Deep mutational scan, measured.
Amino acid sequence: TQTTHELTIPNNLIGCIIGRQGANINEIRQMSGAQIKIANPVEGSSGRQVTITGSAASISLAQYLINARLSSE
């Protein structure tokens, strides 16, 4: 079954999640098997909405990979 998880990434950290020309986010997508959508910046908001869709296992793996990127910054 597909589930969806949403999280907010601070604007100053979204770059390390996306990577150069989307390299990091594509790697996270491939490794986790989850669909990951990053919302466009919202004016006045300090973060970007990230939506992860997939199986429970792929979502938790995607979250783990995202958190690993954030903590390495």
Rank of each mutant, 00 (worst) to 15 (best):
E27M: 12
G54V: 01
L70W: 03
S72H: 10
N24M: 13
N67S: 11
N40R: 12
E27H: 09
E6Y: 15
V42R: 11
I36C: 06
M31K: 15
I66D: 00
R29V: 08
S45H: 06
S60C: 09
I59V: 14
N12L: 05
T4I: 05
R69V: 03
I38A: 02
T3F: 15
A56I: 11
N12A: 08
I36T: 03
V50R: 01
L61G: 03
A68T: 03
A56E: 11
I9D: 02
Q2D: 13
N67R: 08
G33F: 00
I59L: 05
T8S: 10
R69G: 02
S71A: 11
S55D: 08
T4H: 06
I14K: 01
Q2E: 10
I38N: 01
I66S: 02
G44C: 07
R29A: 10
H5L: 15
I28D: 03
I17D: 03
V50T: 00
L7Y: 04
A39T: 06
S60W: 04
L61R: 15
I14V: 08
R48K: 04
Q63V: 11
M31A: 13
M31D: 05
H5Y: 09
I25C: 00
R48S: 07
G15P: 10
N12V: 05
Y64H: 14
Q21A: 09
S45W: 04
G22N: 14
V42K: 11
I36G: 01
S58V: 03
I14F: 04
I17E: 01
S45C: 12
L7T: 04
Q30D: 03
G19V: 00
N24S: 11
C16R: 15
Q21T: 07
Q49D: 06
N24P: 09
S46V: 07
K37I: 15
A57I: 08
I36N: 02
R20V: 11
T3I: 05
A56T: 13
E43P: 12
C16Q: 12
M31H: 09
T1G: 11
Q35W: 06
N67P: 01
N40I: 03
G19A: 03
S46K: 12
N26E: 11
H5G: 09
I66Q: 00
I59S: 05
V42T: 09
N67L: 07
R29G: 08
E43M: 13
